[in-house]
């Protein structure tokens, strides 16, 4: 197994592991924005630059997707690597000056503000990392949003910039967005969740017992289709919030209410989990 010498610390990693894997193992922090362990490497933000020592020359590479295939020597704290990461962050801050998350990350890197003016327009601080699009495609499987345009006109949008027919209002995109561009908003009056800025809305289910908000209806439907268990009892539980669900089970167990066959089956399934 190859050994990565990273800032003097030596760690052994699997073949084809990345430099980022090695850094995590060695306990060395490298800032990232477009990296997420659940999806394929994007390597779009270029923030995780490190310097590879190839003996007679040095090369800047992205840590998140550089595959380790033999023993290598990497420097995270070299002057070139630090300068490269600073430069990239300064460009990002110039593009997206209002993102608190971005500014926080910059501060952690020791960077305050940017020497560059804002010359490109970002949609609410979007840095075009691509996490939202790839999560929707690979993890959720809906591809409700994607990139359109090219270069500085590149934006994340729904097809034809119209309301998406595919969005299920799961909020995964908002969850992974590293700069706070995508926000989930709950509309009290209509009982809907909105994925902003894509304007997709979905009705939220409410707990039949206590009225607390659950997931969106399309997410519920989507999971039901994927799970393919056709039990009436399962469906009953599906419309309860976690608190009420536990209460119902507890009631059935403690009060000795006779369980019918279906209840027992459901209990068994739950126990097997």
């Amino acid at each position: 197994m190859p050994i990565v010498n990273i800032d003097g610390r030596k760690v052994e990693v699997q073949m084809e592991a990345t430099i980022l894997d090695a850094a995590q193992k060695a306990g060395i922090w490298i800032p990232t924005l477009c990296f997420h362990s659940s999806i394929s490497h994007l390597a779009t933000c270029r923030l995780c630059m490190v310097e590879l020592d190839r003996g007679d020359w040095k090369q800047l590479v992205t840590a998140c997707n550089y595959p380790v295939r033999r023993d290598i020597v990497v420097s995270v704290s070299s002057e070139n690597a630090v300068k490269a990461r600073r430069g990239v962050m300064e460009l990002l801050l110039a593009r997206s000056p209002e993102s608190e998350q971005l500014k926080e990350l910059a501060r952690r890197m020791g960077i305050e503000g940017s020497p560059y003016p804002n010359v490109t327009e970002s949609l609410r601080n979007c840095i075009l990392c691509g996490l939202c699009t790839i999560v929707c495609e690979e993890v959720i499987g809906k591809s409700a949003i994607g990139f359109s345009g090219r270069g500085v006109d590149r934006v994340v949008t729904t097809p034809f910039r119209q309301l998406s027919e595919d969005c299920i209002g799961c909020g995964a995109c908002a969850y992974v967005c590293p700069v706070g561009t995508i926000q989930l908003r709950v509309h009290e009056d209509t009982g809907e969740i909105e994925v902003s800025p894509f304007k997709s809305r979905a009705k939220l289910l409410v707990c039949e017992e206590c009225g607390r908000r659950l997931v969106s209806e399309p997410v519920n439907k989507y999971i039901m289709e994927k799970v393919k268990i056709d039990l009436a009892e399962f469906r009953k539980y599906a419309k309860l919030c976690s608190v009420c669900r536990r209460k119902k089970s507890a009631n059935i167990l403690s009060l000795g209410t006779p369980m019918n066959d279906d209840d027992r089956k459901t209990e068994n399934i739950k126990c097997q989990k």
Binding site: A43, T44, C45, R46, L47, G87, V88, L91, L92, A94, R95, Y116, P117, V119, T120, I127, L128, G130, G149, R150, G151, V152, D153, R154
Partner: peptide, 21 residues
């Protein structure tokens, strides 16, 4: 180059725009 950049990575997309500016 600004027009032809694919826009995927930060330095090319933002850096070229800054240089052109």
């Amino acid at each position: 180059l600004k027009e032809e950049s694919c826009g995927k990575c930060t330095p090319c997309r933002e850096g070229i725009s800054q240089m052109l500016f």
